[in-house]
Design a protein around this nucleic acid. Structure first.
Length: 363
DNA sequence: GATTCGTGGCT
DNA sequence: TAGCCAAGAAT
């Protein structure tokens, strides 16, 4: 059960070159930039998060400026990146740092962990990268590299499993500088010891890798099966008046896309519902009178895959005379000119519809 | 501790 | 195609 962590360290650090995986925040110790990048990169590929990082830094160069930003502006900058609770917690944390910590990030693991949106991984990353604290990060890369090197089939998805690998990571870290070690092991997992098609032929740790010796590379790390995805059917009501104004509503807490905006939504049990059946549906907005609405067209079915849900959506385009008349808007809804959509953060399934529609119609 | 929270790329 | 995975965290 003993493994040569000394050889692991030396091989890893000899392999490491920071410029193998350039990142705008690498070799930089500004806690704000490191924190921002780490939140953006949670469960997100570097290539996908990079432009968001650049836009956030440009819009909000300091944590104080971010703290002063309106909620909707931050959500809009986050639009399309997913896991929107990250954006809400980002703002909460910025305001906490500004109001309660004199604008400076806590410089300890425990202090960082107390901020919203900062969990064990992110606290360790900031503590080591920005403050040179001797803590080992544990992310998807580290799980995979350690499980394979040690030939360790402990499930990584349980509490005890997590603890086990944290100890392994700390043993591997030893007294090497944590910032460099952490970046090295994550780069190594991303570039060499990859989930599929791992580059074992050129691996500097191959001679002491237990998974390779036992031909278990692709059996590790071991994870427990995940739960099934459920299917939901969304009927969006694209209600447009003669002045190109639309109804929008904000999504509530307790469901996907919390605090993003959308067209009024009727969720139903099936996707093939006619408009008359839709207006009679229990989920039809209570104070939205169907009578003045004229059915213009109906989109095809948009399919959207989330991690635990499959969404099927249809957009019903309806016209009405004047959304500024006294009968409007229904409670909880906004009347928004098409030109002002850009101020509202929308889920990807809606921006996809808008992109399609703006090409075919003068939408 | 099991579930839930997005989106996109890859096989 | 359907599933896996990505610098995870909150509930």
């Amino acid at each position: 059960m003993e493994h040569d962590w000394q050889a692991f360290r030396e091989g890893l650090l000899a392999w490491y070159r920071p410029d193998r995986r350039p990142m705008p925040w690498k070799e930089n110790t500004d806690p704000y930039r490191i924190w921002l990048s780490e939140i953006i990169l949670q469960q997100t590929r570097v290539e996908q998060g990079w432009p968001y990082f650049e836009r956030f830094v440009a819009a909000y160069p300091t944590v104080g400026e971010l703290a002063a930003a309106p909620d909707d502006a931050v959500m809009k900058l986050w639009e399309g990146l997913g896991y929107y609770s990250r954006a809400r917690n980002l703002l909460r944390a910025a305001r906490t740092v500004t109001a309660e910590h004199d604008g400076r990030f806590p410089d300890t693991y425990a202090g960082l962990l107390a901020l919203p949106g900062i969990g064990p991984y992110t606290a360790a990353a900031i503590a080591s990268f920005a403050f040179d604290r001797q803590v080992a990060v544990l992310d998807g890369n580290v799980f995979r590299v350690l499980a394979r090197y040690a030939g360790d089939a402990t499930p990584t998805t349980t509490g005890p499993g997590r603890k086990h690998f944290q100890q392994l990571a700390e043993r591997a870290l030893g007294d090497t500088p944590a910032a460099r070690f952490n970046q090295a092991i994550m780069d190594f997992g991303a570039l060499v010891c990859t989930p599929k098609l791992a580059d074992c032929a050129h691996c500097p740790l191959a001679t002491s890798c237990r998974a390779l010796a036992e031909e278990k590379v692709y059996a590790l790390p071991l994870k427990k099966r995940k739960t099934a995805v459920r299917t939901r059917y969304f009927h969006y009501l694209v209600i447009k008046d003669e002045q190109e104004r639309y109804l929008l509503e904000q999504r509530p807490a307790g469901d996907i896309w919390q605090s993003l905006y959308q067209f009024p939504l009727v969720e139903a049990e099936r996707i093939d519902l006619s408009l008359p059946r839709l207006t009679a549906h229990p989920n039809w907005p209570a104070d939205l009178a169907p009578d003045p609405l004229r059915h213009m067209r109906r989109s095809g079915v948009y399919r959207h895959q989330l991690s635990h849900q499959t969404i099927g959506a249809v957009f019903h385009v309806l016209s009405v005379g004047d959304l500024t008349a006294p009968a409007y808007p229904p409670s909880g809804m906004l009347v928004v000119p098409r030109a002002e959509f850009e101020r509202y953060a929308l889920p990807r399934i809606i921006t996809r519809f808008l992109e399609d529609t703006s090409l075919t119609l003068g939408f």
